[in-house]
Design a protein around this nucleic acid. Structure first.
Length: 262
DNA sequence: ATGGTTGGCGTCCAA
């Protein structure tokens, strides 16, 4: 059975419920993983999504910050969440599809502005979060699993608009890239997006602060779709819906897609 | 070197 999955940092699911409806209507992924819902779970407008065929949801939320949700046309089993780095934030949730595939939805801490854990506690929390992800996947090697989300790191030189200019900018520093690569190695995760789109600049996020985000095109690939080796070769059709960044009152992130024939 | 924008909450914090 082939199914298409998308991941999108929505930056408030209540404010942008209309954009979620647009995406579900126009692109019709089977599963949509959202981050930064900024809403308690019981205030997510599930009825509006259910009316479009997305009646299944597994989510974790808190008031005002963070929050992750998995919306699906297909039945989901809630398989729990982890509070990496003990932050008490809603940044992870996992669900199992009926074909046995487990989907992990992550919102990794952004890490503040200063890439120095002595001066900036948030940067330390980001690195700790990634270390605990690494340790968890090392303890129990995942199988038939997909990991998606806003990982807040652009690992490759062609994942940012200017590699040299961003080496000291949080999201592209060598220590973060190493930490993310350690997570990948621990779980033997395959970067599905880059398996499909092997070359060239590729971005999923553009700052709100740019005057003309599209013309300036100073993007970063912060949003990822990974899979374990047993299913990664079944993936195809990866793409980033850049158009969504230009929709009315957009999120600063664009949705990332992949299809799996498991 | 700096400031630029957005959302949620509440008179500022996180991104």
């Amino acid at each position: 059975m082939a199914f298409t999955l998308a991941t999108w940092n929505i930056n408030s699911v209540r404010l942008r419920a209309g954009l979620v409806e647009t995406l579900l209507t126009q692109e019709a992924p089977d599963v949509l993983c959202l981050q930064e819902c900024k809403s308690p779970v019981d205030q997510i407008p599930l009825e509006r999504f259910a009316a479009l065929g997305y009646g299944h949801m597994v989510a974790r939320g808190q008031k005002g910050y963070n929050g992750v949700a998995i919306l699906s046309k297909l039945p989901l089993e809630d398989v729990g969440d982890r509070d990496f780095a003990g932050l008490g934030h809603s940044r992870h949730v996992a669900a199992r599809l009926e074909n046995g595939v487990v989907v992990h939805n992550f919102y990794v801490p952004a890490g503040g502005d200063e890439p120095n854990r002595e001066k900036n506690e948030k940067f330390g929390q980001k690195l700790d979060y990634l270390s605990e992800m690494r340790d968890w996947f090392h303890e129990g090697r995942p199988e038939k699993a997909i990991l998606v989300g806003d990982l807040n790191i652009a690992p490759r030189e062609d994942d940012v608009w200017d590699h040299k200019k961003l080496l000291k900018i949080v999201s592209h520093t060598p220590v973060e890239v190493e930490a993310l690569n350690a997570v990948m190695e621990a779980g033997a995760w395959v970067d599905v997006t880059r398996q499909d789109i092997t070359e060239g600049k590729l971005y999923s996020w553009w700052s709100y602060r740019a005057k003309d985000w599209s013309a300036a095109d100073k993007g970063r690939r912060l949003d990822h779709i990974w899979a374990t080796p047993d299913i990664s070769s079944s993936a195809y059709g990866s793409r980033i819906l850049r158009d969504a960044r230009g929709w009315e009152k957009p999120s600063d992130h664009a949705p990332v897609f992949a299809t799996f024939d498991v």
